[in-house]
Every structure is written in structure tokens, then in C-alpha cells.
Design a binder for these strands. Structure first.
Lengths: 138, 138
DNA sequence: TTGCGTGCAAAGGTTTTGCATGGCA
DNA sequence: TGCCATGCAAAACCTTTGCACGCAA
């Protein structure tokens, strides 16, 4: 599906390199620009759209400046099968896969008649590190 | 906090009237326009911002056309204390408050070291009615 | 009467699109 | 060689902001 180009390679590399955090399209554009040969903005957007469509990258809305953020998740792990914990402070994304969470889905389905889509659902909150920082500040 | 005006009243009425679904700012603007005296777009946005800030209205990003959606939730119910189930098909928002969900928070905190923020977290999936429609179509 | 609320139009920012050119397979 | 990919600039889009006027308290 599609050619492999210098640009497509560099965009995927960049995303994988920063797989532990989110980046906006502009951030990526600027990071790529620094190098010898940059990548056009539209190209960045076009690839991000594709990568989101095939599940390689996850898109988050509602960032600070009204711009979307993107994060590599890879296609290996079937993300619909587990839940995601996203830290609202540092942006870290944790993939949580445990029995309790599967029970949760069943519970919600049986008791509340609602079929949860694990792939679309994200738990927002604070990760251990950020929770500690928060409490020490206060 | 603030004056009560014809516009502020009409906006709140409209939101309460459609409390079972989401509306975009433009949709609201158009609905209000139909009546004898409309409400300016900026006024709609300005009130929605306030209502979101004080918890009366919930804002959702990532709708079809890239525009935000808003839904009345009311300030009576402390939404941080329970979870929200949002149907991706019909847009219905269910407020789920049960023991199992509280357990979940504790589980995630203890086992995964993550402090879930119930007010920000939304479960996406299909409500009973839409799940049935989906399966009958297929 | 005071100062917040309103509406219009303009500005702001992000993302998409058209089109000619470049480059992979 | 045939098509897809790229890049630029323009367009499209949603949302915010400036400013003069209106209106609630």
C-alpha cells in the first residue's frame, strides 16, 4: 500500500523514536526540518492520516493549542483488546492488559447494557510519577 | 456570576432540551436563529465556554467535521464521582455509578499506579439499542 | 449608572486541498 | 514508464478576539 519514500521513512522513524510521548504535526515538521532535508507540512499530515487509519498511530484531540497530538502505538499489539491509561500531566501512555479490565467490560455489558470499545476508550488521570509530583507541590 | 440575559437563557434552555445528545456550536446557532430573535455565534461560544468551565456542560472533541460537540450534564450530579458511557453511534451519554466502577479506580491505582480521573474519562462503545441495530444490519 | 453581555467582522490557528513536479517500483 | 508521493501556496474550517453599542442589576 503506497510507496516507501525518504519522507515516509523519516516520519515513521521519528514517531517510533518518541513512542513514549505525543507530538503535534507541527512539532514533527520542525524536528524533521532541522535535518539536512526536511519534509513538507502537508506530507506530515498526509502520513499521519494514513498511520492513524491503519492503527499504527493514535491521535489525541484537545491538546493545549487546539492542535491534535499523535503517538506511535504500533500495529503488533491489538489495542482493542486492552485499555489505555493516559497521563494528563506528562502525556505518557500506558497499555494496561489485565484480567480485571476484561471483567469490567463484561460487567458494563451485562449490568449497563453497554458494549465498551477498548480501542477507543482511554482512561485519563495521573501516572505514578506525576501523582507524586502533584502531591509534593501542594 | 454574570448577568442573566435573553441569550444566556435561550442557550441553557436549548442545551437542557437536548440533554440526551450532543450539539455543535454551529448547530445551536442555527437552531436559535430559526426563532424570532437569534443569538450571535460568538455569544454561543462564549456561553459554552463558561458552562464547560463550571461543569454544567461537557465538551467533546473529535466529532465528524472537526468541530467540538457540547452536551448538558448539569451541576447537580458530581460527575467526577462516576463514569460516563458514550455511545459512538447515537451519541447518548450514560452516567454509570456503581460499586464495580469504584473498585476499578482502586484497582488501577494499586496495581497500575495510575490515579484515574473519573471526570475526564469516558468509555466509548455502543449502547444497547445501537448494538442491536448494528448486529441486525450485519 | 456601572460594567458585563452582545454582535459583527476581522483575526487566529490548524488542517485540507489543488496542481505541477519529483521519484519509487 | 506509470502512478503515487511531494511541496508549495491557497483555501477551508472552527474558534477567538477587538470594539462599539446595548442592557441587566
Amino acid at each position: 500500500m503506497g510507496y516507501q519514500t525518504r519522507q515516509s521513512r523519516r516520519i515513521l522513524e521519528l514517531l517510533q523514536l518518541h513512542k513514549n510521548r505525543c507530538m503535534t504535526a507541527e512539532e514533527m515538521y520542525l524536528l524533521l526540518k532541522d535535518s539536512s532535508e526536511g519534509v513538507g507540512q502537508s506530507t506530515v499530515y498526509r502520513h499521519l492520516e494514513r498511520l492513524c487509519a491503519d492503527g499504527t498511530v493514535r491521535k489525541y484531540l484537545g491538546g493545549e493549542g487546539g492542535s491534535a497530538s499523535y503517538q506511535y502505538v504500533g500495529r503488533e499489539t491489538p489495542c482493542a483488546a486492552h485499555f489505555h491509561l493516559k497521563c494528563t500531566a506528562c502525556g505518557a501512555l500506558l497499555h494496561a492488559d489485565c484480567a480485571f479490565l476484561h471483567e469490567l467490560s463484561e460487567h458494563i455489558l451485562k449490568e449497563h447494557g453497554f458494549a465498551v470499545d477498548g480501542g477507543k476508550t482511554v482512561f485519563y488521570g495521573l501516572c505514578a510519577a506525576c501523582a507524586q509530583k502533584e502531591s509534593s507541590v501542594k
